[in-house]
Each structure stands twice: as C-alpha cells, then as structure tokens.
Simulated assay, not measured.
Amino acid sequence: CRKHDIVLSLGNTARSGCIHDRRDKMQVAEIRQNIVLAHRALERGVQVIIEGCGGHIRSDRIPSYIKYQKGLSPFPLFVAGPLPTDIAIGFDHIAGACGGSAASAAGADYLCYITPAEHLGLPTPAAVKEGLIAFRIAAHIGDTVKYGRDAQDKTVAELRAALDREGQIRCSMDPGRARELSDGEAECTMCGEFCAIKIMREF
C-alpha cells in the first residue's frame, strides 16, 4: 500500500440498523480496533481514513457520536449517511443528506452518498446522480459550518437580489436541472408582481 500510495479505508461494519439502536459495546470495540489498526498502518507509512458513525442514527445523537469518535483519534472520519429516520424508503438520499450535513458540521471529514434505491435495489445511473447531488449539498452545508465556506451562497444571494435568474442557475449544483425547472421569469415565481425586491426599488 505504501509503494502504490494507497489509502486504506477501515470499515464500519457494526452500524446501527435503525434509529432505535444505541451505540453498544461492539460498536465501541470496532472503533477502538480500527484506531489501533490505523496507527499500525501509519507507522508503516500507509495513509488511513476510518469509517464510523454510519448507518441509522437518530438526529439528536449524530453530533455527539461524531465528536466522540473524532476525539479518540486524529484520523479522518468517513461516514455512510447517517440516516436519521427509518421511514424515508425511496427517499433515503434526502434523509441521508440531512444526517450527512449534521455529521459534516460536527466534524466528519468524508460523506458516503446514499441513493433513492437504498434498501430497495441496485441504483440506476440517474439514482446515483440524485444521491451524489444530495450529498454534495450536505457536504457544502457542513463546510459552511466547519470552514465558513459560504462565499458561493453569498454570490447566489446577491444574484437573487439583482433578480439575475440565469446567474443563480449557473451557480447551482446542477444548472441543467435548475434550468429545466425555471419558468424563465426574473423575479421569484412565488411572489410574481408582488416581488418584495422590485417593490422596494420603487421606493
């Protein structure tokens, strides 16, 4: 692994299967074992990330679980999801992105995306794209908290204030999708002629 500059990802197999599962002795033992293995790899010049806090974790527990694991070792933490609800079947990419943004904001370093097909079957390319975009958004939300990376959000806010619809679309995660949904109007579709920005400009 050192010769070929391979990064090991030490897996998280003792994941919670539903949000009613609490962290147990097996999960803690796995975390500690992965940390031991990570140190052994690093001593031999092999880079490591550790998978943990994945699976199904109730929303209010996500930050404390992340901080617990990050507090045990210096290694980057990779999380699958986590899913903060069990009822989003068919929309697990949305539920997972909610959990992923909370995990990222709490200190997780990598997010593993989930597709709408999670728990149902193998995803199509379209489902993969949906999952990836959902988790790119989740990661961005986390980055605004961890690193203050909100310059792009400020740009979009300024474009919105300037009623520059095309500019907003260009700055979006998926311009093609945004353009497809746009009705072509400059002002907010919800407000129409009662657009607060346009009215304020008159005064």
Rank of each mutant, 00 (worst) to 15 (best):
residue 66 I to A: 05
residue 31 I to T: 12
residue 191 C to G: 06
residue 91 F to G: 04
residue 94 I to Q: 08
residue 164 D to Y: 08
residue 33 Q to L: 09
residue 3 K to F: 11
residue 169 I to V: 04
residue 5 D to T: 10
residue 61 R to G: 07
residue 189 T to I: 12
residue 30 E to T: 11
residue 161 A to P: 01
residue 108 A to F: 04
residue 194 F to G: 11
residue 121 G to A: 07
residue 162 A to Q: 12
residue 152 Q to S: 12
residue 93 H to Q: 04
residue 183 D to K: 06
residue 118 E to H: 04
residue 93 H to N: 04
residue 188 C to Q: 09
residue 74 P to W: 00
residue 69 Q to L: 09
residue 117 A to I: 02
residue 119 H to G: 04
residue 57 I to L: 11
residue 140 H to P: 05
residue 191 C to Y: 14
residue 43 E to G: 03
residue 163 L to P: 01
residue 76 P to E: 00
residue 84 P to K: 03
residue 197 I to L: 10
residue 148 G to E: 04
residue 130 E to D: 13
residue 185 E to L: 13
residue 105 A to F: 03
residue 163 L to W: 10
residue 56 H to D: 13
residue 62 I to L: 06
residue 82 P to A: 00
residue 71 G to H: 07
residue 154 K to Y: 08
residue 63 P to R: 07
residue 148 G to W: 01
residue 183 D to R: 08
residue 70 K to H: 09
residue 127 A to C: 06
residue 186 A to H: 14
residue 98 C to Q: 09
residue 27 Q to T: 11
residue 203 F to P: 12
residue 62 I to A: 00
residue 197 I to G: 05
residue 69 Q to P: 02
residue 32 R to H: 14
residue 118 E to L: 11
residue 61 R to V: 03
residue 138 A to I: 03
residue 153 D to A: 15
residue 193 E to M: 10
residue 146 K to W: 03
residue 90 G to N: 08
residue 100 G to R: 04
residue 27 Q to A: 14
residue 48 V to T: 03
residue 152 Q to N: 10
residue 101 S to C: 12
residue 171 C to I: 07
residue 131 G to Q: 07
residue 78 F to P: 02
residue 9 S to A: 15
residue 78 F to T: 01
residue 20 H to D: 14
residue 173 M to F: 15
residue 55 G to Y: 02
residue 173 M to T: 04
residue 181 L to K: 11
residue 12 N to Q: 01
residue 92 D to T: 09
residue 3 K to W: 07
residue 200 M to N: 12
residue 195 C to Y: 01
residue 166 E to H: 10
residue 165 R to A: 09
residue 138 A to K: 08
residue 35 I to P: 00
residue 124 T to E: 04
residue 127 A to L: 11
residue 191 C to S: 12
residue 170 R to C: 05
residue 174 D to A: 13
residue 137 I to E: 00
residue 185 E to C: 08
residue 165 R to S: 03
residue 80 A to R: 12
residue 105 A to E: 05
residue 32 R to Q: 15
